[in-house]
């Protein structure tokens, strides 16, 4: 029998990265500050997780300005969507396997 855990994506082990992906999959574009507020994390903590997701090609970064202040927003990529859906499917299969 295949080990059900091998389909889980290691990148989404972190609750913060999992939270970011959950938010981005249902919202077209979300700003850094909104993510920070919804996930209740600090700037530095969130930033490092965002870099990680970006390096894996799961999210796209858009840098813009509102007046003089920088406004960074994020959106999910095709690859990110697929990876996250696979991850959810793997979790669902684990639950089915346990019954």
């Amino acid at each position: 029998m295949k080990n059900p855990i091998e389909n889980l994506n290691k990148i989404f082990d972190s609750r913060i990265r999992m939270g970011v992906m959950s938010i981005l999959i249902v919202n077209e574009e979300v700003s850094f500050n909104d993510l920070k507020q919804m996930l209740d994390v600090t700037d530095g903590n969130l930033a490092s997780h965002m870099v990680n997701l970006e390096e894996n090609g799961y999210i796209k970064v858009h840098k813009g300005f509102i007046g003089r202040k920088t406004n960074t927003t994020y959106s999910i990529t095709r690859a990110g969507e697929k990876a996250f859906k696979d991850h959810i499917e793997a979790l669902e299969n684990m639950i089915k396997g346990m019954k």
Binding site: R15, M18, G19, S22, I25, N27, I88, I95
Partner: peptide, 14 residues
Amino acid sequence: ETLQDIKRMMERSS
């Protein structure tokens, strides 16, 4: 629990 967390985040954010 993880799945429930994901669902909660999706709902709360949208």
